[in-house]
């Protein structure tokens, strides 16, 4: 079993580590880096709870090997708020509409919708549902999540920043 030196950026911080070939990115983030906001729900790529941004793109971290993150920039839910104790506009919109209950799928939902809003300032309801279509939630029936993302889009537009920058600002 090969071991590999990797260097990467997590939530803006540059780090390096030695990882076994078979270690998945989600296990690496959670167990080695103790970034436990990203959750493992199914470990076979269906539920989306483990979603993270890899070089700006939302991916399943259970289907990505840690070694593959070498040289990459990773953003997890812990990296979405402007500073500790605060929430970004998207997160705050989730709070406003109560877009979660148990919270287990929430980080994946935030990652998926963050990526949507970075690319699309005025998503339709269908586009919102498509963006979170790969993230299963068992609590909410999705309604308050869809409402939250629409609310966040509206607030981000109102913030007089292009959605991309405003979304980046949230980190």
């Amino acid at each position: 079993m090969s071991q590999h030196e990797i260097t990467f950026t997590v939530n803006g911080e540059s780090q390096s580590a030695t990882v076994a070939a078979r270690l998945t990115l989600v296990d690496f983030l959670r167990d080695a880096l103790r970034l436990t906001g990203t959750h493992a729900g199914c470990e076979h790529g269906v539920c989306g709870a483990c979603s993270v941004l890899l070089d700006g793109v939302p991916v399943r971290s259970c289907l990505t090997l840690a070694v593959q993150a070498d040289g990459s920039e990773i953003v997890t839910v812990e990296g979405l708020a402007p500073e500790p104790g605060t929430l970004g506009i998207l997160q705050d919109s989730f709070w406003e509409t109560h877009a979660l209950q148990c919270g287990f799928c929430t980080s994946g939902m935030l990652i998926a919708s963050h990526a949507l809003l970075a690319a699309n300032a005025s998503p339709t309801e269908d586009e919102i549902r498509e963006a979170i279509g790969g993230n299963l939630c068992r609590c909410t029936g999705y309604k308050q999540i869809v409402d939250a993302i629409a609310l966040a889009a509206e607030r981000l537009r109102g913030s007089n920043l292009p959605a991309k920058e405003a979304a980046d600002d949230e980190r």
Binding site: R30, D31, T36, G37, T76, V77, W95, G103, F104
Partner: peptide, 21 residues
């Protein structure tokens, strides 16, 4: 009224059993 719990989950600060090491 906003809930008491949502804030910590939205920050990635929930504490689930798999987070206990």
């Amino acid at each position: 009224r906003r809930t008491k719990e949502d804030h910590r989950f939205l920050a990635g600060n929930g504490r689930y059993v798999a987070d206990i090491a």
